[in-house]
Write a protein that binds this DNA or RNA. Sequence first.
RNA 1: GGGCGCGUAGCACAGUUGGUUAGAGCACCUCCCUUACAAGGAGGGGGUCGUAGGUUCGAGUCCUACCGCGCCCACCA
Length: 897
Amino acid sequence: MEELAKKYSFKDIEEKQYLNCEKKSFFHGRIDQSKNPFSIVIPPPNVTGILHMGHALNNTIQDILIRQKKMRGNETLWMPGTDHAGIATQNVVERKLAKENLTRDDVGREKFLKLVWDWKQEYGSTIIKQLRSLACACDWKRTRFTMDEGYSDAVLEVFIKLHEKKLIYRGNRIINWCPRCQTALSDEEAPHKDMEGFLWYIKYPVKDAKKFLTVATTRPETMLGDTAVAVHPKDERYKDLIGKTVILPLMEREIKIIADEFVDPAFGTGAVKVTPAHDPNDYAMGKRHDLEFINVLHPDGRCNENAGDYNGSDRFEARKAIIEDLKQLKLLVKVEGHSNAVGHCYRCHTVIEPYYSKQWFVKMKPLAVPALKAVKDGRINFHPQRWTKVYLNWMENIQDWCISRQIWWGHRLPVYYCSKCEDENDYEKGVFVSRVKLDKCPDCASNEIYQDPDVLDTWFSSWLWPFATFGWPFHKTKNSSPESIELKKRELEYFYPTAVLVTAPEIIFFWVARMIMSGFEFMGDIPFKDVYLHGTVRDDGGKKMSKSLGNSIDPLEIIAEYGTDALRFSLISITSIGQDVYLAKEKFEFGRNFCNKIWNASRFILINLEGADVTVKAIPVKGELNLADAWILSRFNLTLKKLNESLAKYRLNEAANVIYEFFWHQLCDWYIELSKLNINSIVTKTVLYNMLEKSLRIMHPFMPLITDEIWQKVTGTDTSIMSKSWPDVDEDYIDTDIEKQMQIIMDVCVCIRNLRSENNIKPKDKVDVKIKHEDPQILNILVSNSEFLMSLAKVGNINPKVTADSNNPVVISSTAAGAEIGIIISLDESFDPEKEKQKIDAQIKELNAHITRKDKLLGNVNYVKKAPPAVVEKEKQSSLELKQEIEKLEKIRSALK
RNA sequence: GGGCGCGUAGCACAGUUGGUUAGAGCACCUCCCUUACAAGGAGGGGGUCGUAGGUUCGAGUCCUACCGCGCCCACCA
């Protein structure tokens, strides 16, 4: 056994230990039919990602689960990788170009893509490197990227298959358009935020009448594309106007007044301007009434040639101008403040424009059926459970998924159009979905065929993550042999479905729900059994940590200052299941201090085990152990039991705190202190060794690096605890009687320390103690373990008969564990019997309050009748004990001169 | 408009199915550099568990309403 360095220095051990595990392939998962598989796929961070606290939390949780399962004998696999993050990554490279005053159009598609790949090559592994600094036990050799060759093949396969099943289609729809990114977005990518805006009331002159019809709108600029005004069919105010015509101001266009049930007569004026090309509701009305669709915006948000005089001006500039012009024309009736929810681009936060456009969609309803069922019948479970409802609600109201994006970085749609055959009115004519590149039209053989310039939504590749990462669909590539394909197939079979998905609730819709759907569609099975949703990391003011807010704490900085293990343990211990995590830098001191404690306690044990022949198995049977030995073994097994329960329920903070409590406040504070009395006994040494060895095992998933370092010193090996087994609970050592006895010793010890402290007795000075108890058994426990008290409370003599003498003439007493405890002190001027009496009076008063409450309870016939007998008995006993304690205190009080 | 979470000590939090005198951490006060550890040890002060009702023998825990904070979803212009 080697000694540990005097000072714990995480910098000297952490990286070394991580590399050691990796070198020994402990992170590698492979098929082992003798074991149960336990696999996790990492939520792939964006290639543009920089490690933040959310990642730190997310991956620490996964790492704990993986390591613990591996120790429990499962064959574990943690699949790592990154996501190409279409828009986000494209934006990064575009911003880089912008610094040189270039746009992507300036460089062209091919060159631009090369620039993105170059960027990916250079910076794309940053996040992976950073994950390693968290000590993640990922199987790095398997690291996947959503745009690597095989993965792209999966995306292609899925597109083709869904298209064959008519679940992918092309159509003209109102979609969410980001004028800055200039692409369509899915509904999930355009979150609505409440904004304070205005409701403008605008008069539309009725044709051939000296009347006006007033409409209310939040987006006046869209009036340029109005093709009707709608009122409710039963609205008496407007009944006679239905079918008539109004003149659209500014455009001088004649538009119809239509009747539609959609209109709410109570809102605004009860008359709605209808802009079918720029609003989803108006779109629906436009369809119902066969209205014209006039698009008045360029893709970049400027007004187009359909916008009359406003052609060329930005949508918000146009809004201002239109309001001014309407004012001039005296057509603006009034303006009201109005708050409504406005969609924003989830990548650049620009206000979304509902935009009429031709896009590709996935029909979701059929895919949702098995995904709904699996969660309803419990084949997939959410933790915490409340998210189930959120999931089900979304699934039940699922909308079709817009998957085409007008950007360049991503999987290009495997769709080809023939210029000759294309037909504006027929979405399928001249359109070909193909696995291979087409250079001739399959219909007319024309070579005027071109591939769709669009790429697929990033999530269209990530939703395949749980199986595509294993090599599905196993097509032959230039680097694959039939054997390697065969192996991949078997690996998927072995590791799929994965055990648990660990992620944040923000992406339930984006990702979790879609993976469940794709799992059923392509694997015919769930992708994972459990979904563990952890909270969001916030600053201590409750704000979400983000780079843009400038309130983030950099995990790498924390690692540099406190160490990886400290970061992990701190983070986990303050993360209660599903709750958001409030972080401040100081919180990491918690983990650091604990690591330090582990180090020092281990150091003590190692020093004292020097040369001793101890093994884990050599613990004597219980009867041969002293109280302290038996107690700590009981504590350990109870701790382990609780730990196992907490882990099974994903209550990792509870698990961390159970470990902390045991190691620090039981093993260190009491057992190690007591062990010093018998440090040369082989039994004590064995127990110490055993406790250290087992503690290291159970702490390893939480703090893998420090535990491995100590483990190697303890065992003289160079292995990792990862490859060792999780301890079993040994019920034989759990002993409530031993626990009770030890509790008495501890209570009395605290009582003596308390008396010493209150009476200003110097820590070095020994005191004589007088202990009285009516119960000879308890007295016996105290007397036979008196050496513990002598050591822990610096007691000289301990004896029921100790009396004051002329040198030490005063006995100061208190009660603990039902015993009367007195210490003999020498009299000095600071001693004031009156103060002692007051102290005792206060104690008595408090006890009396409890007794009164209890007696009232016990006097209640309903309570005695209805409460479980054990509870009643406990109350009775407790009341009795309190009364006895008061008696003792009163005796002590009256003895005071 | 619907849904969810939170409100417990000065601070930020835990409290699993309702059952002894509501818990640790940080901060604070007193004492101690005691031979594993001052990133430590011993002791201590501090809480009408957001408010008001209700269910119950018994409520921080369950129910209802309300107040405050935060989040998510939804096509009311």
